[in-house]
Design a protein around this nucleic acid. Structure first.
Length: 550
RNA sequence: GGGCACGUGGCCUAGCAUGGAUAGGGCAACAGCCUCCUAAGCUGUAAACCAGGGGUCCAAAUCCCCUCGUGCCCGCCA
């Protein structure tokens, strides 16, 4: 197995440069003592730890640290504030963009990371609860990809177990003579659940099919894969609307078909305990069952095999899971590390449930909002708004914009909230395109594009910067710190919040600094092009589709 | 009962890892700003005992303990 390189972002990291110098002066200074300042200075050193008269500390630092990039150093309330020359920050960004066409630049690591997400049972359409998984997973994929990892995504297709068997049986019982379609499959599936309440032979039939399945009945497995594929295809096409395409699909049945589950059980046979014919692992006073009395395998066993399979090709494995899987994941993690040669790094990203105002989502009670519903309504709402705000736009343009808004807006509303938090889905919030929203960011971008379009004969230059320009430069410069934070904690919401900050700062600049036909035009155009680049870069990570006009 | 999360103005949310400068945004409300680069924008007003209590500390939304509320898990389901 490879060791995972600790990736670094490549740019002129003034915080790091300063930290190294300060460490030479005061040994007990650590990275935590320097903050990215907001209102007081660009970088801030807390000097509570330094047991010296603050005035003396200031003098010492002023004497020792005389780098070109530093504009001034001030003392205020036990903080030493460092001001960086805006032109230096701007140069840092632009040199990187010029050379590598991105800021910051990255290493391309050779280690491979697999992000497993969505993995919904292919027994129904994907709804707004499940898309939190997909959106978080896809954003983490984009984030790591941008950071320089070789990342791919994977969907674990659960085509074994009682749910999909019910899907298959529903078709055989109620729609046998029809070609399987999404509609008749869902109908059959729901009827199975309804009818088994009164007809207990259904349970017996499911049990028999499960045994045939586990014994590797190839014909049955193929038939079930066929019906599952139809539902899976509908999930795929829904996800595609919001820009999510999963790189690889792994079918659970393959592990049964090729005997992987049994092989794994043999490998740890000496560790297994029995209760009747059922096999389990004893961990403390917990019993983790791997097989049933009838010999069929349980999810836990198949999940072990799946993770061993992932570890064969990937150095880092990331699972996106609902919070209801916390215990399962904890047990799985323990078992993989204590009973197997499992050397890959593994992370579990959990997210809180999405509920509706009417309560918990329930497929069987019909209390769900599907992704397709949400997408259609968002399109509809955005078209309505565009017709009012942009009466001159033609249909083709309106369609293009509304699609970009729908996809971006759905993703952004989910991703901007910390994954730990439970979410209550509200139409009024989903269809609001103002404030902390994707359209707000898209709008800022369109404003920048519009100016660039109208100023064909511009040059780009450096100069002196007023407070709005300085704020914008600084906010752009600190992009790598947010990027790193988002990666270190696998938290795409950090990126989302950065983008709102960046857009807000841009709008402030836009309102206060005229560009076209202004004496300062060339200097400001440079800010504009830099802003455009960074917004594009970050938008790609959270899945916002930027367009020139909105 | 045990475990894991979450609780910040009327509503949503950032900050909590690494304690430190007036708790930052947004929605809704109210008052303003388009002969000037896209008003999906901007400015201003009002609104928060950071769930409650205790503790540690020069300093607590942040760390520790207890309590309350909500959700999730505690299956030979997935």
């Amino acid at each position: 197995m490879f060791n995972i390189l600790c990736l670094m972002l490549l740019f002129n990291d003034y915080k790091d440069i300063l930290l190294k110098k300060l460490k030479n002066l005061y040994g007990n200074i650590s990275s935590n003592d320097i903050e990215i300042g907001e209102n007081y200075g660009d970088l801030t050193l807390k000097i509570f730890k330094i047991r010296e008269d603050p005035e003396k500390v200031l003098i010492k630092i002023r004497n020792e640290i005389r780098d070109d990039f530093i504009e001034k150093i001030e003392l205020k309330n036990n903080y030493i504030n460092f001001f960086i020359k805006p032109v230096e920050m701007l140069r840092t960004m632009n040199e990187s963009i010029k050379q590598f066409s991105m800021y910051p630049n990255v290493f391309q690591d050779t280690s491979r990371v697999l992000i497993e997400h969505t993995s919904s049972n292919p027994t129904g359409p994907i709804h707004v609860g499940r898309i939190r998984n997909s959106i978080i997973g896809d954003s983490i994929f984009r984030l790591l990809d941008r950071y320089g990892y070789r990342a791919i995504t994977q969907y674990f297709v659960n085509d074994s177990g009682k749910q999909v068997i019910s899907l298959y049986l529903g078709h055989m019982r109620y729609h046998k003579n029809e070609k399987p379609s999404l509609e008749n499959l869902l109908d059959g599936y729901q009827r199975i659940y309804r009818d088994r309440e009164i007809d207990h032979s259904i349970d017996e039939e499911i049990k028999q099919l499960d045994e045939r399945y586990e014994n590797g009945d190839k014909e049955l497995i193929t038939s079930i894969q066929e019906v599952a594929s139809i539902v899976l295809d509908s999930i795929k096409s829904s996800l595609k609307k919001i820009g999510i395409e999963i790189s690889t699909y792994v079918w659970e049945s393959n592990f049964i078909l090729y005997g992987e589950v049994n092989r794994m059980l043999d490998d740890i046979s000496t560790e297994l305990k029995s209760e009747g014919n059922a096999k389990y692992l004893a961990i403390g006073d917990k019993k983790i069952f791997l097989t049933r009395t009838d010999g069929t395998s349980l999810y836990f066993a198949r999940d072990i095999v799946y993770h061993l399979f992932k570890a064969q090709s990937f150095d880092w494995i990331i699972d996106i899971l609902g919070e209801d899987h916390k215990n399962h994941a904890g047990n799985l993690d323990f078992v993989l590390k204590n009973y197997f040669d499992f050397e890959s790094k593994i992370n579990y990203v959990f997210y809180g449930f999405v509920s509706l105002e009417s309560g918990k989502m329930s497929t069987r009670k019909g209390r769900i909002v599907t992704l397709n519903d949400l997408y259609d309504k968002t399109i509809e709402e955005s078209i309505k708004i565009i017709r009012v705000k942009r009466p001159s736009y033609e249909d083709e343009k309106i369609n293009k914009i509304s699609k970009a808004i729908a996809s971006s807006s759905i993703r952004f509303n989910i991703i901007k909230v910390n994954a730990n938090k439970p979410i209550t889905f509200k139409w009024s919030e989903a269809l609001n395109f103002e404030g902390d929203s994707a359209p707000y960011i898209m709008y800022s971008y369109a404003r920048a594009c519009s100016i660039l379009k109208k100023s064909k004969n511009y040059g780009e230059s450096y100069g002196d910067y007023n407070e709005y320009e300085r704020k914008l430069i600084k906010t752009m410069y600190i992009y790598p710190y947010y990027l790193k934070g988002a990666v270190d904690f696998l938290r795409p919401d950090i990126m989302a919040n950065y983008m709102l900050l960046l857009s807000k700062t841009f709008n402030d600049f836009y309102l206060n600094c005229p560009i076209i036909n202004d004496p300062e035009m060339n200097k400001r155009i440079k800010l504009l092009t830099t802003f455009k680049k960074i917004l594009e870069d970050s938008s790609n990570i959270v899945g916002i589709n930027l367009i020139d006009e909105i």
